[in-house]
């Protein structure tokens, strides 16, 4: 009996267990460790970002920084604070366009701005503003509707480098044609040249378009309500989030909007899986424009 009760010494063989079937790839394990490292050391939490595209971005960052593996990248990011802005920029995807999906801006013009016009003062939050493409888009839209002087736009992103560029209002001239086409397709009253001038390899927007814009760093993962808004534009940001984070942010939007306020999401976004989205009623489903609260009878 006594001999049986003695704990058996683990033999060497016992350590050589068969690896579990379907164990994750080293890359996927390293991705999780990267996310954890960034969170522990720098306080940035990407754990609720959809993995497939995040993995591509982290792999690209590893290559760009001369790291052979994500694991190697992680130890550098954890030890070297200087790398952090590069990492944040790489995670953030500030890829945008002016008047992207022109029919959406047509719809805003036709269906939302006339209702906003009844407010003496209009607050607009643009969440995930990238390099400002949509900020200038909005400013032009409001200007042409004769509403801009009553508006305050809060343009936020968690990427400081992108925000700094947004503040400049300078875009590569190679984009100009696409923007100009989009502008016209969105029902613009002039031509885009009316608002910007070309110089060498870039176009620069009229600084007057920024007169009612406040740029600020706001992280949708961690930060809370900071204003009361009549319209929130958050396009192609939540697509990167898992369902729980998407739900959290939609809750944040609900708490920010006035009753009857508007939310405009990206053209392919789906909010079917979000509890908080239940309080939003589709105004224009195609354009992904929603209104907070039950439809008025």
């Amino acid at each position: 009996m006594a001999a049986n009760a003695r704990p058996r010494m683990p033999t060497l063989a016992a350590h050589h267990r068969e690896p579990p079937l379907n164990r994750p790839d080293p890359d996927d394990v390293e991705l999780e460790l990267f996310i954890r490292g960034l969170q522990l050391r720098h306080g940035y939490d990407f754990s609720q970002y959809a993995r497939a595209s995040l993995k591509r971005r982290v792999q690209a960052l590893a290559i760009a920084t001369g790291s052979r593996t994500i694991g190697e990248l992680t130890s550098r990011v954890v030890r070297d604070d200087v790398l952090l802005p590069t990492v944040v920029s790489a995670m953030s995807v500030p890829v945008s366009e002016m008047f992207r999906d022109p029919p959406v801006f047509r719809a805003l013009r036709a269906e939302v701005l006339p209702i906003l016009a009844s407010y003496p003062h209009i607050n607009i939050w643009q969440a995930g503003c990238a390099r400002g493409e949509e900020v200038y888009t909005l400013a032009i839209l409001l200007e042409e509707a004769g509403l801009y002087d009553r508006c305050q736009i809060f343009a936020t992103d968690f990427n400081d480098a992108a925000l700094a560029q947004a503040q400049e209002g300078i875009f590569p001239v190679t984009e100009a044609r696409q923007y100009a086409e989009n502008y016209l397709a969105a029902g613009g009253a002039h031509t885009l040249n009316h608002y910007c001038h070309a110089k060498y390899d870039h176009i620069k927007f009229d600084s007057a378009l920024r007169r009612n814009v406040t740029f600020a760093n706001h992280n949708l993962v961690a930060d809370g309500v900071f204003c009361e808004a009549h319209l929130i534009l958050c396009r192609n940001v939540l697509i990167y989030f898992t369902n729980p984070l998407q739900d959290r942010v939609l809750g944040l939007f609900r708490n920010t909007l006035v009753r009857g306020g508007f939310l405009c999401l990206g053209s392919k976004e789906s909010i079917d899986y979000s509890e908080n989205a239940r309080e939003f009623v589709a105004l224009n489903r195609r354009a992904r424009i929603y209104r907070l609260g039950a439809p008025s009878a």
Partner: peptide
């Protein structure tokens, strides 16, 4: 267009790959 581990679809507007969005490489790798 990407596939997540739980076999759901994910859409991204990340930069073009091979001058393309959607890119075949992105779908195939995921």
């Amino acid at each position: 267009l990407l596939i997540e581990a739980d076999e759901t679809f994910m859409l991204s507007v990340d930069a073009r790959v091979n001058f393309s969005r959607p890119a075949i490489d992105v779908l195939f790798e995921s």
